[in-house]
Write a protein that binds this DNA or RNA. Structure first.
Lengths: 224, 224
DNA sequence: GTCTATAACGGGATAGAC
DNA sequence: GTCTATCCCGTTATAGAC
């Protein structure tokens, strides 16, 4: 029963953090939603900050393990061929989005929280996240460099940023432009189709030839 | 002098919101940074929420006006030609990024705040933002549809989301992957180059042929 | 392990002197 | 318009009964 309570608190905290952010979510709100006593958080976790840390750790670590395992699977193909660019992108992009669909309990809401936290500037969070992400980023950077030998390293660096931006925005699912249809990831009927759309978009962007579109870039301003 | 004080408060609030978020920023911190009395916020703005609203309104409205004016300039070209896809993307993407560079006072920090707020789920903020963005999005949607007649409307809708995701992430500038060089927009020496990079990436993604990359999308999973 | 009660503090907002 | 002082509430964290 002792670990049961911790899990219940984690689930409640995860939901409220995703909805309101960290600072706006009080321990009272968390414990009341979890149906446990106010003192339980400090007993089980020590502090609010430690709770936040565990909320992330619980799901990010398996998620990144899944990304790496997909990547390794691609690189150990039987025929010894190099993985395609699309396969690499999918290996990076699909795990969080499928998590939003699959994880019965709180996976859906966690992905929204994670998408938000990409733009969270708190120093504590930044360093914690970097520690969890660094190995993944390193491995994928090498893989992308092999798949795109014609793209200069600096350009590739920026394009990986762009990829993360697309992913983070979809994960956060805030529907800034919701004027046509559903756009929250969790509501979307077919995650596989979203993954395919994102992969196509990102792959084309990553392959973009240098200079192909340059002339139009800087001269279109109407007035200073 | 009366408007002077309001401006000082707005500047201080903008900075602190960008650094810490809304909930974590107290009125005490704002007024102390601004060098004014604690009661000044409530006197001049009525409430913390109203202050937040004005912080955004002050810069978003001219920013979106600039986007629309660039778009209209493109569409009224002398030779009657349709604007290129790259020109449309630049018209949408450049104003916030150049604002980060140009605005002497708080433009830089505001852009970080704005990038963050794209994934801010507060209902109040969502509706306020939508009101300010709706006309811009509508106009650009039509322009993109004309520039990309071969892309089905649903696909185009998602690709515009992707574009916003790239932009929002760059604006927030949180350096999730900072392992090579600088990545904070404000630190970057050449905003024009960043705009060109983003435009090239997004343009290629938006033009991506349907099905060109489909077969690799879904079958690469290593294990369930 | 779980509860109640409370400490110690900081939050937003306001009344009223100046 | 600007200040001080204060109200009232919610916050995290903890002490101690059960």
């Amino acid at each position: 029963m002792t670990r049961e309570t911790k899990t219940i608190i984690l689930d409640a905290a995860e939901t409220l953090f995703a909805e309101q952010g960290f600072a706006a979510t009080s321990l009272r709100a968390i414990t009341s939603r979890a149906g446990v006593n106010l003192a339980a958080v400090n007993y089980h976790f020590g502090s609010k900050e430690a709770l936040i840390d565990l909320v992330f750790r619980r799901r990010i670590i398996p998620m990144n393990r899944e990304r790496l395992s997909r990547l390794e699977g691609l690189e150990r193909a039987d025929d010894g061929s190099e993985p395609s660019l699309e396969a690499l992108i999918t290996a990076f992009v699909a795990p969080p989005l499928e998590m939003a669909r699959d994880a019965g309990s709180g996976g859906t809401v966690f992905i929204r929280l994670l998408g938000r936290s990409y733009t969270e500037p708190s120093a504590t969070m930044q360093t914690a996240m970097r520690a969890m992400y660094e190995p993944v980023i390193d491995r994928f950077k090498q893989a992308f460099a092999r798949a795109l030998p014609q793209v200069p390293p600096v350009e590739l660096y920026w394009r990986m940023h762009f990829m993360v931006g697309v992913l983070a925005y979809m994960m956060a699912g805030t529907d800034m432009m919701r004027l046509i249809a559903t756009s929250r990831v969790a509501d979307s009927p077919d995650i596989g189709e979203l993954v395919r759309r994102m992969t196509d978009f990102i792959a084309a962007g990553m392959r973009a030839g240098p200079g192909s579109t340059t002339p139009a870039g800087g001269m279109d301003r109407v007035e200073a």
